[in-house]
């Protein structure tokens, strides 16, 4: 078994690009984009909240697509990718709900508003995906675990758009929404700051995703090394001596 490189290729470069993009984005948000006339400085949370929401929803759907790939190819690596994507999206989702609540409290006076369709549909999707891990880890057989997790990821991925349509149909539009017409009303400076932060958050997701996969890969290799070491009688070298794994 040839040792795979311990770090995913390009991880370091990707992290640097992510850091630069995010910092540029935040600099634009605070020093370049104008202050919102209505809402003041709290509106800046929009540049974190909306990109996080968009990226995590894309992460959920991407997890579903990777799950399709897993079922088609029977490659456990795709299951791992799908799992990490969904897992990260849940973490981002917590941040989405917290920033959304803060924003709602400041601009509408309530921690939670039921007539904001995007927020409500997001909560439903989030609640559904919260069951992904309990379901996954309550199945002990690894092969079956990856298949069942993939089936869940596909069904839930199909659920995301349907749910958004249903909630949007149900809610009469009361509040003016910043992004409802996909930023059509945003002034150019705000738009630029928004797109840069969106790109930054997307890159952040990609970096964390790669990092998590790398760490899973590393612990898997470590386990394999330890097993081959323990199985070897003392005084002998392991039959297939694993090459030392390179760093960087």
């Amino acid at each position: 078994m040839a040792a795979k490189p311990l770090f995913g290729r390009g991880l370091r470069l990707l992290s640097v690009i992510t850091a630069i993009t995010l910092l540029t984005g935040f600099a634009l948000v605070f020093f370049y984009a104008p202050l919102d006339a209505d809402q003041g400085v709290i509106q800046k949370i929009f540049y974190v909240h909306v990109p996080l929401a968009i990226v995590s929803l894309c992460g959920f759907v991407a997890g579903g697509l990777m799950a399709i790939q897993q079922l088609r190819t029977r490659d456990r690596a795709w299951d791992m990718r799908s799992y990490v994507a969904i897992h990260l999206s849940i973490v981002f989702g917590v941040a989405v709900l917290i920033t959304g609540s803060l924003w709602a409290k400041r601009s509408w006076g309530h921690w939670w508003v039921w007539d904001e369709p995007v927020l409500v549909s997001y909560l439903i999707v989030f609640l559904l995906y919260c069951c992904y891990q309990p379901l996954r880890f309550s199945i002990s057989d690894p092969d079956r675990q990856s298949r069942y997790a993939s089936v869940f990821a596909i069904a839930a991925g199909a659920f995301v758009p349907i749910n958004f349509v249903a909630v949007r149909l149900a809610v009469q539009h009361v509040h003016p929404r910043v992004l409802s017409e996909t930023g059509g009303h945003l002034p150019g400076k705000m738009m630029l700051a928004f797109y840069v932060t969106l790109l930054g958050v997307a890159l952040l997701f990609a970096t964390l995703w790669k990092l998590e996969l790398t760490s899973k890969n590393a612990s898997e290799q470590l386990r394999r090394l330890r097993r081959s070491f323990e199985e070897t009688p003392p005084g002998e070298l392991p039959a297939e001596a694993p090459e030392p794994v390179g760093v960087g």
Partner: peptide, 27 residues
């Protein structure tokens, strides 16, 4: 079928199926 193999089946089924039913409930 999805929950049939899960250990905590009685918990997984409602937690899984009720969010999925929300669009139906709305309509």
């Amino acid at each position: 079928a999805l929950a049939a193999e899960a250990r905590a089946r009685d918990v997984v089924v409602p937690l899984l199926v009720l969010p999925l039913y929300v669009p139906l409930l709305i309509a």
